[in-house]
């Protein structure tokens, strides 16, 4: 009976692909989200998602593949943000805010000026739809996500040291600057891989919420990462089936499940949550 309920939506190829994409994105976003939560990169993730839109517009006008445009724009912006961060004396969030809203606005204006015939609704590429994931999109998510997970796996201990204590890590001979830029590049790649499937707002939620929930549940970095990935995948899975049976949009439901899990954990371990929030100011 339960098996039938679980199998019913999977009769349709597009729903199977959507589910696979959602689970993959839940995992990848939560893994990179561990750094996003601990280093306060949430705003950067948002910025990258918006900048990817401008990349898509330019790619559309110049005849490139959309993914390439978004990827180039996001990675370039990620590196730019990394360079801003290393400069002392500039409020980073202000600088990023100026940069990303400017670039996003440029994308909007460019779209209306540059496209005089039929406007393919480029916004829909940014406010993506998990249900229109094509086999090609799934391959892109798989490829880019695999690359991100592989690099994080290989450089796990270096990225951990640099995230926790960048100055000491660098003083001890680790390439701190390069590792931080790598982290931002991986974040850019994750955002681009995810944004077409789940959209700008939801990608930020998937970056932050499962990892934040995992943070409330453990004291160890690698457990936070694994737990976050599990929670991300669980949110995707539960959210997807809920959206099917409740007949509501999938992306929003997935994020709602992730948020509900966070609320549940925060409520059930009130002492810990309060302690953590206090520590983090």
């Amino acid at each position: 009976m339960l098996v039938d309920l679980l199998l019913e939506p999977l009769r349709y190829g597009f729903l199977l692909r959507g589910l696979a994409a959602a689970v993959l994105i839940g995992i990848i976003c939560a893994v990179i989200g561990t750094y996003v939560v601990l280093k306060g990169f949430a705003f950067i993730g948002d910025a990258l998602a918006h900048i990817a839109f401008t990349g898509i517009v330019v790619a559309f006008l110049a005849g490139f593949v959309f993914y390439l445009g978004a990827l180039v724009a996001a990675v370039a912006a990620g590196l730019g943000i990394g360079l801003i961060q290393r400069r002392v004396g500039l409020r980073t969030d202000t600088a990023i805010g100026i940069l990303f809203s400017g670039i996003f606005a440029f994308g909007i204006v460019l779209m209306s000026v540059g496209i005089k015939t039929y406007t393919v609704d480029l916004f829909s590429y940014v406010f993506g739809d998990i249900l229109s994931v094509r086999p090609r999109d799934l391959l892109v998510i798989l490829g880019l996500g695999g690359l991100v997970l592989l690099l994080i796996g290989l450089l796990y201990k270096e990225l951990l040291f640099v995230s926790f204590d960048p100055v000491a890590a660098e003083a001890n001979g680790l390439p701190g600057g390069a590792l931080q830029l790598l982290l931002l590049t991986l974040l850019s790649i994750t955002v681009v891989a995810s944004v077409q499937a789940v959209g700008v707002v939801l990608v930020v939620a998937m970056l932050v919420t499962p990892s934040a929930t995992a943070y409330l549940l453990t004291d160890r970095f690698h457990r936070m990462m694994l737990l976050g990935a599990g929670l991300g995948a669980l949110s995707a899975l539960v959210g997807f089936y809920l959206s099917y049976y409740l007949n509501v949009p999938s992306g929003g439901t997935i994020v709602l499940v992730a948020s509900a899990l966070f609320a549940l954990v925060a409520l059930l371990s009130p002492r810990r949550a309060q302690l953590r929030l206090l520590v983090r100011g």
Binding site: P9, Y12, F14, D121, S124, L131, Y244
Partner: peptide
């Protein structure tokens, strides 16, 4: 929602609709 789309796919198959139509201003 996923169910709406799944039902539409079923409908297209059952009714033997030969083609679907999009509009150029939409993705």
């Amino acid at each position: 929602s996923p169910q709406e789309l799944a039902q539409l796919v079923d409908l297209i198959r059952q009714q033997g609709v030969p083609a679907i139509f999009t509009e150029p201003q939409f993705n």
